[in-house]
Simulated assay, not measured.
Amino acid sequence: MGFPAMRALAISALALQGACLAIDRDAAPTIEARASWTYLGCYTDNVSGRALPNGEQVPGGTNAMANELCQSTCQADGFTLAGTEYAGECWCGNAIGNGGALSTNPSSLCTMTCKGNAAETCGGPNGLSVYQYGSSSPPTSGTGKRGLAYNNNNPTANAEYANLFAGYSSVSWGYDWGYPSYNLNPSFEFVPMLWGLPSGSDPGWTAAVQTVGTKNILGFNEPDLTYSGSSNILPANAAAGYATYMEPFAGTVKIGMPNVLWNNVGSSSGGNYDSAVWTQYFLGNCTGCHFDFAAIHYYQDCDPADGQSGAAWFQGNVTNAYNTLHLPIWITEFQCYGTDAQQVAFLQTVLPWLDAQSYVARYAYFGVFPDYLVNSAGTGLSDIGMAYATT
């Protein structure tokens, strides 16, 4: 799947007993504990490509602007960087982007007096006075296992929401169920996916795999399922597709197995058998295929009705996938159904466990959308998103 609405269809088709997602936006945001705000310097900025992407309205409006007010506003919305510009503008983000560079001549760029504090400088027409919470240097590329399942369904038709995670070291990669990256922040590794079987030769897919920086590729999204948002491919056809579109790149990039819903115990594409059996049939037909890792999905209640632990269910499912497939595991989609607080508690339990398992290579919680990992306004991380980025 690639969109929240499609996931709802999947739940219905699989008859999973998922609780309704109840969003609690009154809960206080969990802000990662950092040291204090540090001045990074004067950065170049322009309206066609902002060094920090998110404009914020501070209490009192532009006439009240001061560096501290901008910083507290950005922090409350889950950002690590704050920048003031043109005496009354506040910009937030988690990494410097769009070519913004430390100015060699700040005296000509950052010279305007803050409208709310005449003793401070709030950038200039093309200069951004940038501050960071807890570090003396801008964020660098992530090194952790965590990834971002995102799309371009936002006001900029870009990777705007995914880029909110730039600067969190635990997050290192992203994918969007396809192969345009939509300008994903370069601090993340973009992983292209061939979502379903092409109708013929696909030069766009070949070009995406051969793009400089491509290290891993994903193939076929939920081919084991039959709902409208799945790729719904018979095992033998999926094997033939892998031989044609994936296997030619063996040895040049790492190839993942099809992304299957490993905890599906109902029917699947091709018959009245579950996704694990679909995978066995696929492997039986793909005898000449090379795989570097397995890719699985997981969806279930945070707190199952029978009183068992949702986190334990998830851990057991991931362990079973590894013991069955004997490959490094990527969990390219997973989510537990519950309130914000239940999801945060789930993540706080399973994320350290995932990071500690040597056979778990990467994982991505669903998903980078408003009211999921992003707040309802799309301007910063939600409570769940902050837990995902900082636990």
Rank of each mutant, 00 (worst) to 15 (best):
A5W: 10
R7H: 10
A8P: 01
L9F: 10
A19E: 11
L21T: 14
R34F: 15
A35R: 07
S36H: 09
G41N: 12
N46I: 00
P59K: 06
P59A: 11
A64P: 05
M65C: 13
N67W: 10
E68H: 12
L69I: 04
T73V: 12
A82E: 00
G100Q: 04
G100F: 03
T104K: 07
C110Q: 06
T113Y: 00
T113R: 11
C114I: 14
A119D: 15
G142Y: 13
T143N: 08
G144M: 03
Y161G: 03
L164P: 00
S169E: 07
L197N: 08
L197I: 15
L197V: 05
G204M: 04
G204A: 09
A208T: 04
V209G: 01
V212N: 13
V212D: 08
S228W: 12
S228C: 09
G229V: 11
G229M: 04
I233G: 03
N237K: 04
A239Q: 12
A239F: 05
T244V: 11
Y245S: 05
N259T: 10
L261G: 06
S268W: 01
G270A: 06
Y273M: 11
Y273K: 03
Y281Q: 09
C286I: 01
G288V: 00
C289T: 01
D303L: 15
N317R: 08
N317L: 06
T319K: 15
T319A: 03
T319E: 01
W330S: 11
Y337I: 14
V344N: 14
W353G: 04
W353M: 04
L354R: 13
L354I: 05
V360Q: 09
R362L: 05
A364Q: 03
Y365E: 15
G367H: 13
D371G: 13
D371T: 07
S382L: 00
D383T: 15
I384F: 00
I384Y: 04
G385K: 04
M386H: 08
A387V: 12
Y388D: 15
